[in-house]
Write a protein that binds this DNA or RNA. Sequence first.
DNA 1: ATGATTGATGCACACTACGCATGAAACTCG
DNA 2: CGAGTTTCATGCGTAGTGTGCATCAATCAT
Lengths: 316, 316
Amino acid sequence: MKLDIDGIQAFVQVAKLGGFYKAADRLNLSQTALTRRIQKLEAYLGLRLLDRTTRSVALTAVGREFLPRATRLVDELTESVDRLKDMSRWASGDVAIACVPSMAYQQLPAVIRAYAEKFPANRVRLLDRNSTQVADAVRNGEAELGIHIRMRAHPELTEHPLLQDPFMLFCRADHPASTLSHVTWKALRGIDLIAVSGASGNRALLDHQLARHKIDIRGRCEVEHPSTAIALVSAGVGAAILPSATLLEGTHPDVRRVPLQEPVIRRTIVLIRRRNAALSPAAQAFHDLLTRQLSPAASPALSTRLPARAGRGKRL
Amino acid sequence: MKLDIDGIQAFVQVAKLGGFYKAADRLNLSQTALTRRIQKLEAYLGLRLLDRTTRSVALTAVGREFLPRATRLVDELTESVDRLKDMSRWASGDVAIACVPSMAYQQLPAVIRAYAEKFPANRVRLLDRNSTQVADAVRNGEAELGIHIRMRAHPELTEHPLLQDPFMLFCRADHPASTLSHVTWKALRGIDLIAVSGASGNRALLDHQLARHKIDIRGRCEVEHPSTAIALVSAGVGAAILPSATLLEGTHPDVRRVPLQEPVIRRTIVLIRRRNAALSPAAQAFHDLLTRQLSPAASPALSTRLPARAGRGKRL
DNA sequence: ATGATTGATGCACACTACGCATGAAACTCG
DNA sequence: CGAGTTTCATGCGTAGTGTGCATCAATCAT
């Protein structure tokens, strides 16, 4: 009925070391206790595993047959347990993170580099999806952490704002708007706009905000991915309204960003995790690194920083 | 340090059944105790395996990773333990028995048949060796029981006499001695004898006894195996001195056995086992069957029966 | 023969794990 | 929307189990 692993471990040690004293010492136990463990195990099984005189110990036929299996069982068990303990001590193990592409390009690489340096043994699986898919991946456990654009909060998830990212007007250096210090939404009326289609979370957010402010903007041209939109801007097709962070520093030197005002519309990038779900140590370590790196320093001046919240769930 | 298999088993059951109450019921435990087991395991490992709200239970990332291994460990352990318990209850398992050939032909087949009928699942490995090899096999644990000719007792072994077997003169029906009711050793002087070489335990015993009685017998022809000797007798080469039990009933109808007297020399067939060595249940069952069958009934009239001694070591 | 080593046993104690009763949170249903 | 039900967590007293100390018994070394 009850699984007497201690008895089996005792048996293995006695058999391996060939004596109760040595085995007792190895197990940090008195010889008395060890004797009793073996006796208990044998009584429970109803057969003898060890033939012992006062002078020597030998395996019985049954004991000899059982020993290899017993050894393997004990070894595997200790190894499993040790590995789990290491996971907590060293935060070892793999992490799966779901993330919106823009963040995957911009902020995350630095974090992943730092993480890889600190925990060389751990692998990071990065699921780059759109905003709703990120939320889904976290909800169903596919990823432990997610980074996406804040949307109506799902009850199963907790959010932790990382940074805010204002929408800006992207245009080429030779565009009339490129030299302005800012543009208002109303002023966009006469400009050829490149829109990003609805699959992105950005579009939903933007539409919602614009509707709230009764601003009507229509694009002349629509593309799937923000990066395509930038390519079109760079090619002189027109201007695009995109989150500031969409443009990687250094790339497309001919594209300018002009702040959009009245109102300033921001998307909020949030870190999400399952409510009431404990993070694995590996994920916890990543979480810590992420919040630490994305709060005090980093992030271009165009993105508004948010105060870091010590938002990590308490560990047991 | 300590292997908490109960905790792991608890974890497995909770994960499998998806709830503490169900798992507690399955483990014949209160929900309280189960909660504590999980808590203890998690505290020991330093990480959470189960995310539990008051309403539901879900695996953490670590828990999900650990579950398959944990399940396998618990299953293998229970299966091993159950098999060992079955071994004691049903006397299941294999038995190795070392035995001198003559007994292997004569008495043992009936015992093995009975054993096979009673324990169909058990296999019997029969090591047919000569007398000293039988003793060796038992001493080094190759066989749990041995049947051989009594020789100077080894201190590691205990003996249990099974039957006595007088040496007789084997001759063909047309041999001059074949009609005699008995022959004395002295009368063998003028007879062509077929001797069996020294490898057999019989020869050593016989030489020793003959020397003690100052009887000098030399064979004209020497063979290795008793069965060969009988074949030669049957072919009319001469007569042979062999233990009575050498001749299987029904075989060689032309060969007669004539009792040898002055003195009657007997070999004693003994059952041996390691001193202080507990028998496996399977071997114990065989032991019981053997002593029961070879004491009250059986054995031809020519072999002197010995009273059965209740010589089985006490089981725990 | 004597001392040393090794496994078994009697006994007392302490700790752990257990169950009961109860609390807190969350889902359900009228 | 509130009462009832379900489910996991916790405080507390208790019983049982495992443990160590001291000692015995058997065997080996010398």
